Computed example of a mutant assay.
Amino acid sequence: MAGPTLKQGRERRRWWARPLRWWHTLALAGGVLCAPFGFAGNQKEEALADGVRVALSNAIHDARPPKPVAADKQQFDVWHAAMSERLKRKLPDELTRREFLETAWYEARRAGLDPSLVLGLIQVESAYRKYAVSIVGARGYMQVMPFWTNVIGDRDRSKLFNMQTNLRYGCSILRMYIDMEQGNLYLALGRYNGSRGRPEYPNAVLAAWNKWKL
Rank of each mutant, 00 (worst) to 15 (best):
G3C: 06
P4W: 14
G9W: 13
R13P: 01
R13K: 13
R14L: 14
W15P: 01
W16Y: 15
W16K: 13
W16G: 13
P19W: 05
L20Q: 08
R21L: 15
R21M: 12
R21S: 13
H24P: 00
H24I: 07
V32C: 08
C34A: 15
C34T: 10
A35S: 14
P36H: 06
G38P: 03
G38E: 12
F39G: 04
A40F: 06
G41S: 03
N42A: 14
Q43G: 11
E45F: 02
A49C: 09
A49H: 11
D50C: 04
G51P: 04
R53D: 00
R53A: 05
I60K: 05
I60V: 11
I60T: 03
H61S: 09
A63K: 14
P68H: 07
A71T: 08
K73R: 15
Q74W: 04
Q75H: 13
Q75F: 13
V78G: 11
H80E: 12
A81M: 13
A82C: 01
M83Y: 05
S84C: 07
E85F: 07
R86K: 15
K88F: 11
K88T: 11
L91W: 09
L91A: 10
D93E: 11
R97M: 00
R97T: 00
E99T: 09
E99F: 11
L101S: 01
E102P: 04
E102D: 15
E102I: 01
Y106T: 14
A108I: 00
R109I: 01
R109G: 02
G112N: 06
G112P: 06
G112K: 05
L119Q: 07
G120L: 05
L121C: 03
I122N: 09
Q123I: 00
E125R: 08
Y128A: 04
Y128P: 06
Y131R: 15
V133I: 11
V136D: 03
R139H: 09
R139N: 07
M142F: 13
Q143F: 02
M145Y: 08
M145L: 03
P146D: 00
W148T: 01
N150V: 03
V151A: 08
V151E: 13
G153T: 02
G153I: 02
D154R: 08
D154V: 01
L160N: 02
F161Y: 15
M163H: 08
T165K: 10
N166A: 02
R168H: 03
Y169R: 09
C171F: 05
C171N: 10
Q182C: 04
G183Y: 02
L185K: 08
Y186L: 08
Y186H: 12
G190E: 03
R191E: 06
R191S: 08
Y192M: 06
N193C: 07
P202G: 05
N203W: 09
L206H: 10
W209D: 00
W209G: 00
K211N: 13
K213N: 14
